[in-house]
Design a binder for these strands. Structure first.
Lengths: 249, 249
DNA sequence: TCAAGTCCTCCCATTGAATGGAAGCTTGAA
DNA sequence: TTCAAGCTTCCATTCAATGGGAGGACTTGA
């Protein structure tokens, strides 16, 4: 019983605590938090109290813990994706208004597409749940659009480690998909959540020819009109790239 | 030279580091971060490295540091305001669509209104900058709407400590404003940023009669039509409250 | 009403993780 | 080339972090 029985630093523990919240759960019991983060109850309790003192966590009566407003504020005032989202929002709104489709914006993180912004189709219930959601590269049009325009080295590394958990898709299939995407300049893929929807995405390519984001739509199958959608997305993507270049030279 | 020359814990320092980023600045030099957070360079460097190892911070070449995608993801997957924003978004969209005004949603934090969501007027450039922004209670309609429906105890505490930095407004003036707001059920206030705009906000009151948020619009002065706006906002606020009640009983 | 159970909070002796000055290194400008 | 500014690594010192245990608050079931 000394500093760190488990051999990790205080920083590690802090990260464990704030990472322990399962997606979408507003709050957690202290004891559950301790279990999930793998920390002794006492340690979890102490860390929670310290973090709560700074407003990064908030404690409600009876040991419930949730992320704090101040943490939300800090991150959203200074989000790493702020510039990208600001550059993209007007174009995403255009697409939403003109085409009336679900629009989303994703970046590559690890081997997954991380959705950083999303506008719901007019009239549908706002679905912000998918913001900050993730999708593996090979099952999302955004993921394909992002990966297809990475360097050969990155693509090779990705394909080398590729394993489909369901065992249905091989690395070779994905390689073909990526090649097609790179060739046509856009990615299309049947919806995963809903088989009657189709995802279409194009890369946002910055001035150094790096693919920094993917701009995409999710369309009901019977409404797919590639000849209308793809050019709209591509011009929007170029617009986003231009604004990015102008705002942060 | 031992643990903490300055007498604060590791947690305190971690908080200092991630709080050190000035609003809107994407990245910071390590040495500047050390200065801003009041930490020795070595300590700042060590903490940054540890946090970066977990993805909460990201380091770019040459010692630049910025908040990490993983931190953004963690917070936005599990935002303390998630339920509120989800409940409010459809109504905010309605207002934006029907009235074509800037709509915002705020909560009370300390003696300030913290804006947690905002929809821009159609056609205007998306202004997400104000999300996670703050305004003192007495200069924002949202702040007044929030404070006017707090308990007498909270209001008393607020008024007791009230000091206007400009010395133009007295606590007595604010007390009158709050009384008016409580009486009419909505707050109105001349715009602070732009004198030709007017802010109007109503409280969102949950089933326990607690004011949990304020729903407001910012309207050009010549378009203010209270008789149309206020009922729309109030019905929307009731709708938000109902959805909040239904989703988290 | 009482007993058992669950969970949160506080206490405190032990000790190794955190600390930060100094030295080395890299980078870019004069 | 020399110099300056800033990033990174090293390492002896020491006190802040640790976590088991005890106590308290609250709930559940008999």
């Amino acid at each position: 019983m000394a500093n760190s029985l488990s051999g990790d630093s205080v920083v590690d523990r802090v990260v464990r605590v704030i990472s322990a919240f399962p997606e979408g759960s507003g709050s957690l019991q202290l004891s559950e938090l301790a279990t999930r983060s793998g920390l002794p109850l006492t340690t979890a309790h102490r860390l929670v109290r310290q973090l709560a003192a700074h407003g990064l966590l908030e404690t409600g009566g009876g040991g419930t813990v949730r992320l704090g407003l101040r943490l939300w504020e800090l991150v959203n005032r200074n989000s790493p994706t702020l510039a990208l989202r600001q550059a993209a929002m007007p174009f995403m709104e255009d697409i939403q208004q003109v085409l009336n489709q679900n629009v989303n914006l994703a970046v590559l993180d690890g081997w997954e597409a991380l959705f950083v912004e999303r506008l719901s189709r007019r009239g549908s219930v706002a679905n912000r749940a998918q913001i900050a959601g993730r999708m593996p590269v090979h099952v999302s049009s955004a993921g394909l659009a992002l990966m297809a325009h990475q360097s050969k080295a990155v693509q090779g590394e990705y394909l080398a480690q590729f394993v489909d958990p369901d065992g249905k898709v091989t690395a070779e299939t994905v390689r073909t998909l990526l090649a097609e995407t790179a060739h046509t300049g856009f990615a299309q893929l049947a919806g995963v959540v809903d088989p009657d929807t189709w995802g279409i995405a194009v890369p946002v390519i910055d001035s150094r020819q790096h693919t920094v984001a993917a701009l995409g739509v999710v369309v009901p199958l019977h409404e797919v009109r590639l000849q209308a959608l793809v050019p709209a997305l591509q011009t929007a993507a170029r617009g986003v790239a231009r604004r990015l270049r102008d705002s942060a030279p």
